[in-house]
């Protein structure tokens, strides 16, 4: 074995070792690495003593209500299986609309309504001009 082969082998072995270690660490922290949970998962811990956490889901079409002239809004977040009612006072991001993916931070109150302190809009990876979007909507 030439010295340079030894060095190459050394690098490869170290890299593999560290990769395995990092994979193990990341998989054991899996839950902490998730930025949000789905409404179905959130429902399960509705009665737990909670600290703030995040729920990500779609705003149910037709569920959005806001009093005129106030910043208080109510809407339902859903993942198609379960849904959570959300109450939020504040400015909504520009991408907020019904059917949109949204991430809310907050906790449940006694009425099992999720009181959000922050609302973020999640965008998907699709980009298209309005006319093509309209075309897609009408054909589907």
């Amino acid at each position: 074995m030439l010295p340079r082969h030894k060095r190459l082998l050394g690098i490869l072995v170290t890299l593999i070792g560290v990769t395995v270690a990092i994979t193990l660490i990341l998989s054991s922290f899996q839950d902490n690495l998730l930025y949000y949970v789905t409404p179905s998962e959130a429902i399960k811990k509705i009665d737990d003593d909670q600290s703030k956490f995040r729920i990500g889901g779609l705003v149910e079409v037709g569920s959005f209500k806001r009093k005129d002239g106030s910043l208080q809004s109510r809407f339902v977040l859903t993942d198609g299986i379960e849904s959570v009612e959300v109450n939020y006072i504040g400015i909504l991001p520009d991408l907020f609309r019904e059917g949109q993916g949204i991430i809310v931070t907050g906790k449940f109150d006694k009425m099992k309504i999720f009181i959000a302190t922050e609302v973020l809009a999640k965008h998907d990876e699709n980009y298209m001009p309005p006319d093509i979007h309209a075309l897609k909507e009408s054909t589907s």
């Binding site: 930025y35 400015i91 909504l92 991001p93 520009d94 991408l95 907020f96 809009a121 965008h123």
Partner: peptide, 12 residues
Amino acid sequence: KPMWGTAWVWDA
């Protein structure tokens, strides 16, 4: 900032 509603989050 304009789209999500925040400039920074500690997501993965």
